[in-house]
């Protein structure tokens, strides 16, 4: 089986990798690039644990092929904090106890950041709809929604 050579940008760094035609972006991130922060919960695009940004669009990386990343820019959870500085959402998730097992957390953080970029001042209902593609089985979403609303407030400078 011939592999494809792919060049892309991940969290601002140029990367190159080889992948099979059927290999997903999720598999490439985890197995080729060793970025394990993106999780597989279902492999069918139903749980959102593998959420990443692809050229600024929120996608389930299990539904994108590795070869589709050619020439494109990918952002994963590993690029969310800047140096020692956690992203506001990451900090608010900690402060609000908005995570338990944490397996859904990277995907939810990526989805929440995408939501706040689109809608800096969301209502509770908008946060809930914005995160409806990300399953969490531990928290009942309560503290996640609180954390996102609080992060939005701080990001708008009303901290």
């Amino acid at each position: 089986m011939t592999k494809h050579h792919v060049s892309a940008t991940v969290n601002g760094d140029a990367v190159e990798f080889l992948c099979d035609s059927q290999e997903t972006l999720l598999e490439v991130l985890r197995d080729e690039l060793r970025l394990n922060g993106t999780k597989e919960g279902c492999g069918t695009g139903d749980c959102g644990a593998c959420s990443v940004m692809l050229d600024g669009r929120l996608v389930c990386s299990c539904l994108v092929l590795g070869v589709e990343a050619e020439g494109r820019s990918i952002e994963t959870i590993e690029g969310m904090a800047v140096g020692r500085e956690l992203h506001v959402l990451q900090r608010k998730f900690l402060e609000h106890a908005a995570l338990q097992c944490g397996i859904c957390t990277p995907g939810i953080l990526i989805a929440a950041r995408a939501l706040l970029e689109r809608k800096p001042d969301p209502t509770e209902a908008e946060v809930r709809c914005g995160l409806a593609g990300n399953l969490c089985r531990c928290t009942g979403y309560h503290k996640i929604v609180e954390a996102v609303l609080d992060a939005a407030r701080e990001m708008r400078g009303q901290g």
């Binding site: 970025l35 394990n36 922060g37 993106t38 994963t76 959870i77 590993e78 969310m80 904090a81 956690l86 990451q90 998730f93 900690l94 402060e95 106890a97 995570l99 944490g102 957390t105 990277p106 953080l109």
Partner: peptide, 11 residues
């Protein structure tokens, strides 16, 4: 804050 928290929000 939970001791396992930072590892979980950073992947």
């Amino acid at each position: 804050l939970r001791p396992d928290g930072v590892d979980k929000v950073t992947g």
